[in-house]
Amino acid sequence: MPKRLTAYLLAGILGVAIGAFSALAMSGLLPTERRTGGPVELNGWYGDLTTGSAGASPWVRARIARHGLLALANSEAIYFTRTRDDSGRPFTEDCRYRITGQSIPARWWSVTLYNDRNFLPDNRDNALSYDASRADDGTWSAIVAAEAPANRRDWISSRAGGAFDLTLRLYVPADGVLDDPEGMIAGPSVERLSCDEGSA
């Protein structure tokens, strides 16, 4: 009998551990998992159009609560996050990047830089994002770097951003975007230009 009781006890402990770990992993709640993401990919930008909606799965809801609390439903805003440059290397504040995009089908859009804890980086550069108000119609471009370029207007500061990511927000997406995001949104490219010595 004690042997059988021990077997139940071990199986129970193992079951709870597996259940808890799998829940945290599938919901993006592990300490090492820190990004939003999703099944929709736009040139390296990932998003989930069910974010903030009643149709979101319990796993998506848990992930968004952790990484994007108080996100809006997709009729109002959609979100895409990118963690790597065009060559597939993770973003780091030790490198300079050029982000280039085309016209984005939404009433307003922005690209914002966040650190590895999902917060704005601790700097006072007043250059935390780039938004539609600074982009002319058609192609636009900005520099993502820890130091300001010659034209500060087109700068997203990565100072103190560490292993940062970029989030693209589209507010009031245009008609058809929710049905065919890949066909209607050209995800901005992010080219790595240079890196500090020893960090490439």
Binding site: A11, L14, G15, V16, A20, S22, A23, P58, W59
Partner: peptide, 17 residues
């Protein structure tokens, strides 16, 4: 024990999520 462990894993997963 295996069935009990599997049930506990499912319940724990659901509760956490």
């Amino acid at each position: 024990p295996v069935i009990a462990g599997a049930v506990l894993a499912l319940v724990t997963h659901a509760v956490v999520v």
